[in-house]
Every structure is written in C-alpha cells, then in structure tokens.
Nucleic acid binder design. Structure first.
Lengths: 348, 348
DNA sequence: GAGAAGGCTTAAAACGATTCAAAACTCGGG
DNA sequence: CCCGAGTTTTGAATCGTTTTAAGCCTTCTC
C-alpha cells in the first residue's frame, strides 16, 4: 500500500518533501515556485509533478516570515451589515485587486475595543497598511501604528492630523443639506436620531444640523430634539423613536436620522405608532442605500459616492506605499448630494 | 539623541530586541508572553517594560510557523453585500468568539475562481477549518482540502457526501412554499427569476418550484417562465425583468425571485414599466431581509433562520475539531417559513 | 584542449517565535 | 555547609520558506 515516500505521517508536505521526491534541492523547488524561467524545463516538470502528487501548498507563515511582509492591507469599518460600508469595501477591493493586494475586512461594530483588537491582529499578521473608519478616539493608536511602519488611511472621516491621509465626504455639509431641506419645507421642530459624538460622522453631521439651524435663525433649544442611540442600525432607529414618543413636550414634525438603516428602523416604529409620513412626520435619512427609493414611503436621503470613496482611499494607501517619503498626505473630500423623495416631500 | 539601544534601524522589534533590552534570554520573554506565572515578578516587570518601550508586537507569522497553526477559520459566502449572508456571518462570529477563534470572511461573488483563490489563500494561511457556501462544483476541491486536514462545513447548502457536514435550510421546501402560495392565489402563469443552477440554492429552489407545479397539476412548459440571471442582486433582478418584458407570449401574472435583493431590483424595474403590484403581478422573494417588510409594496418572502444557520455551522466545525475521529458528520436542515405580505396578497 | 562564459543547481544562512532539556539559582533542613 | 527539591532562567533546536554566493556542467572560442 505504501509508496516509496517514507511515512510522513499526516503533516502537511513542505518544500523539503517536494525536493526529496523530485530529487532536487529545496532551493530549486523554491525557484520553480518563484522564478520558473530560471529552471530547466526537465527539472521544472519533475518538481511540478512532485508538487502535484504531494498536493503541496505553500506555507504562508514561512513565506511571510522570510519575506518580512505580504501584499495585504486591512480595513476596519463601522458596520459590515450596512450597505454603505459594503459598497465602500467593494471600491477598496477593486483598487487593491489592480495591484494584487488582498483585503482583510472587519467590522468594529462601533466598539473601540473591537477596533483595537482587529488593529493588533492586522499588525501581528504583518499587513502593509490599514484603512480605518475610527469608532472613537483611536487616533493615538493609529499614529503609533504609522510610526511602526504601517501605512494608515482614514476612511469616511476627515483626518485630524496633517500626516495621515483621509478620504471622506463632507458630513457637515450633508447634515446641513438635510436640515436646510426640512426647514425649507416649513418645519421648525426637528428630531435628530444620532449616534455617540465620539463617532466622527455623528459629530460632523450634527455640526451641519446646528449650522443650518443657526443660518435659519432657529434656536436649537427649541427647534432640535436630539436622541442618542447606541448602534446605528435598524434596531437603534426603532429604539430612538420609542424614546422620542416617551418624551414629554411638543412632538417634532420632522426627523433626521444619521443613516438609512437607522431611518428604516425609525420608519418601522413610526408605522407601529400610526404616524403618517410625511404628513405628520417628515423623514430624512443618510447614505441613500440601495433600497431607500423602494420603501413604502420612498426615503429622502443624502447620497454619498460610496464606491469612489473606497477606491480613492485604497489608491491613496497604495500610492503612499509606492511613493514613500515623497508622498504628500492629503485630505480628500467629496461632496454629498440630497435626494428628495416622498418621506419628506409629498410632492416628490 | 540616541538611546542606549543600538541602531535597530526601522525594523520592527523582535523578541530578541526585547530580550536584550530587558537583559534576559529570548526564552524568558516568550515565557512572559505565554506563561507569565512561571516568571518571577521582577523579571516579568522588566520584560513588560521593555516591550512597552520598544512597542513590541508579536509576529504572527513566526508564531504560527512554529506553533503549526492558529485559531482561525475562514468563511466564504456568495455575496457579502447581501444582508442574508451578513446575518449568517454574525451567527458564525458569535459562536467562534466563544472559543476564541477569529474569522476571515470573504465573498466569492458567485465566482468559482474567486472561491478557489480564497480557499487557497486560507489554506496557505493555515486556517483550521473553512465554512463555504459553494458557488459551483467545488466539491472536489473541498474534499481534497478536508483530506489535507482542514475541516470543512458547508454553509447554506446540503452536503452531497456523507463525510462533510452541512447546515442548510430546506430550499426545495422554500421554493415550493412560494409557488404553492402563488398557485393558491389563482396564478397559473408564473415567472421565476433564478441564478445559474450550478448554485445549489438556485437548483433546489427550482426543484421546489417544479414540485409545487406538479402537485397542482400544472405543466411547467405553460405555467413557468424561467429567466436566468448572472448575479443574484438588485441589478440582476432589474435585468431579469427587462428580459421578461422583451419576450413574446403571455405575460405571467406572478413572479418568484430567488432572493430578496433580486426581488428589490425586479420591483424597481416593474415600477419603471408601470406594472401594478400585486394586481398585475404578484411578487414573492426569498430571505426576508431586514427591509422586506418596509418596501413600497411590502414583500412576501420566504424566511430563513439566518443567525442560527451561521451559529450552528460554526458549532459543527468547532465540535468536529475537538471531537476528532469520533465526530459524526451530519446534515442539519432547518425549515423555511413563508411570510405573506402585500406584494403577493392584496388582503395582507 | 585550455579557458571563459553561461546556465542550472546546491547548500547554508537567514526570518522570529516557541519549546524543552538542562543549568542556575533559592531556600529549608539536617 | 551541604543536599535536595523547588523555582527560574537559559540556550539551542525547530518550524518552512527565500535568498545568495558558490559550485558544477556545458558549450563556445581561439
């Protein structure tokens, strides 16, 4: 039953096993794998045959240990279940593929601890760069990472420092767009379901909200009802509405949600409460995700160039690597766009 | 400016650097890292200080090379942008976290080649197991993988062989549920937008469709209009409808889409064509994703236990690892459930 | 037919962590 | 003051690959 190959137990075959079987040295096997044209055809065939017979698969750890690094970059987004981020990730992947980099994608779920854990995991695995949508004050960790030679690009957030690049959409403007729109429709009491201000997007969109109110001469104390939720998804939105309805005081006539997933949950809860949209409550979301236009009441939303966002971030990261010291850090900022639909404007 | 540490250039510090700095041997540093209680407190503190000063981060490659393996499992799903799969992935993660495994998640985009590439990547990286939603006849590759010592569990598909476990939902039944429902509403000419039959889910749901037609005494040649699309997402659904409308012959009065994302696209296209739903066309989707109930016309859909699916698959994989040879392979199958809404039934 | 020039192949030295047998301590008791 | 039993610490071997200098063949030139 047993072949000429002596019992290698069930260890996975190494380059040494292949070399033995093919009757060559390990160096030659390595050459076949990495510089096939430097090996004579006869030898090459013999080695390839042995590889085939042994079902040899390279050991990435050993490769990487020797080579020092590997063509991989890591990305951490806030919520992988959010279509906004999967579209961004697709953009990242498309750019990376062109340079034969692979992507390790993780979701921090807005939890700084999870973010830190993945960051460390990435570093231990020797990624060359990371793209992060920071969930909280993780800037120091990112700066340290950068100092240890791992390129960093911030994703969907504007860099607070000059020596880290970022690609973002103008969230202040986006928040303002939403509120200007609602004010334009005559609303003077607006609810705002937002996440923790430690999340840059939440912070900035809120700044835009306040800015728009100020421009219109409205006092936030009267005009704005802020509700903070823990997770920026449908469940969060539902919880936000429940809290709003539990509060005393004048009911707002309009609602701005920090993203579409949240708006989806809010709409669900509003329906449960029997609120007519937009008649009794005008609703605006953010991201213009794929299903926004298809909802019971089509959702007015702030659109962002998702694919381009990811693509550009990856491009910046790769260029940073290839250009080295001469690379100029930059803050790329795209502009958002308001898409008006029936959830805010009955005439739309 | 320079400290006592001699120029380590900008190489990332190794355990040796830490050892030198702390004035101990590398073995001791390793002990501090892995068996801290075997090291005296004084030494431990000295080493920890050095680690801190040097900003030392373990090299996962070296660790893994020596240890032979690492607590990681890989998962490949058909489409990471599909909420169905992100919910499944969440279930996987939850189970893995309990045993301190990490997850590498990738999307094959229904492309067998991409799937093979990721499978190899996972293997090279030494994952202990993989969970795969196969996109096509990749069974041989998976069997080979299993023979090379990597545990395999099929995700959202029933295993065709006895020695690989699987966790799935009864797609034949699900397909039948959808069609029985439509037939019950009086439809006798039904369109079916489906993906390639090499994808097991597509194949099985179709089997259920045919089964339900047969039971009702309908001839598929008359009653069924099949449309095959390339990608199971909203764009695919839109393309499917365009193709349907380009065809001659009686227009079907009902539509079954292989998943909700596809149905979303189909609904969008139907709206563009000015088709009333459900009056002129009853629509049923599959997966009951988060937004299904919130669409303009709430979508009738076949619901699956997503989180449980992922959790169970991960559980099976981990048990397979820990129980070794005594493990009994099994095919877990959950039952789907039809959720009737307005897109098919005006009275709903 | 000697020497040079190439083309292939080899052997050995890394890479950074873990492990384990052995050495070096410590401490109490005789 | 030595012995022995712990307790800590050490140093070398090891994991699987890549890389490099050196060596061996051929073949070619004069």
């Amino acid at each position: 039953m047993s072949t000429t190959t002596r019992g290698r137990a069930d260890r996975r075959p190494s380059i040494t096993d292949v070399a033995k079987r093919a009757g060559v040295s390990v160096g030659t096997v390595s050459n076949v794998l990495n510089r096939p044209d430097q090996v004579s055809e006869a030898t090459r065939d013999r080695v390839l045959l042995a590889i085939e017979e042994l079902q040899f698969v390279r050991n990435a750890s050993a490769r990487q240990l020797r080579a020092g690094t590997i063509q991989t970059i890591g990305a951490i987004v806030l919520d992988i279940a959010n279509p906004f981020f999967t579209e961004v990730a697709r953009g990242v992947e498309d750019r990376l593929a062109a340079d034969e980099y692979t992507l390790m994608l993780s979701s921090s779920d807005e939890d700084p601890e999870r973010e830190a854990r993945y960051l460390r995991l990435f570093e231990e695995h020797g990624v060359q760069g990371v793209m992060v949508t920071p969930s909280a004050g993780s800037l120091d960790a990112l700066l340290a990472l950068r100092d240890r030679g791992i390129d960093v690009v911030l994703l969907d957030t504007t860099s607070p420092v000059d020596d880290i690049s970022s690609v973002a959409v103008d969230d202040v403007r986006g928040g303002a767009l939403a509120i200007e729109h609602l004010i334009g429709l005559g609303h003077t009491r607006i609810a705002f379901i937002n996440g923790p201000l430690t999340i840059k997007q939440c912070h900035d969109r809120r700044a835009g909200v306040l800015e728009a109110l100020a421009t219109a001469g409205l006092d936030p104390a009267d005009a704005l009802v802020e509700i903070t939720i823990g997770s920026l998804n449908a469940d969060g939105g539902e919880a936000g509405i429940d809290e709003l309805f539990a509060r005393d005081g004048d009911r707002p006539t309009a609602l701005f949600c920090v993203n579409d997933l949240t708006a989806l949950g809010a709409l669900r809860a509003l329906r449960a409460h029997g609120v007519a949209i937009p008649a009794e409550m005008a609703v605006v979301g953010y991201d213009d995700v794929v299903f926004a236009s298809m909802l019971t009441v089509p959702l007015t939303s702030v659109r962002q160039p998702t694919h381009q966002l990811g693509w550009t971030a990856a491009d910046l990261l790769l260029r940073q690597r290839s250009e080295g010291a001469s690379f100029q850090h930059q803050r790329v900022q795209f502009q958002p766009e308001l898409v008006v639909r029936g959830s805010s404007d009955p005439s739309a």
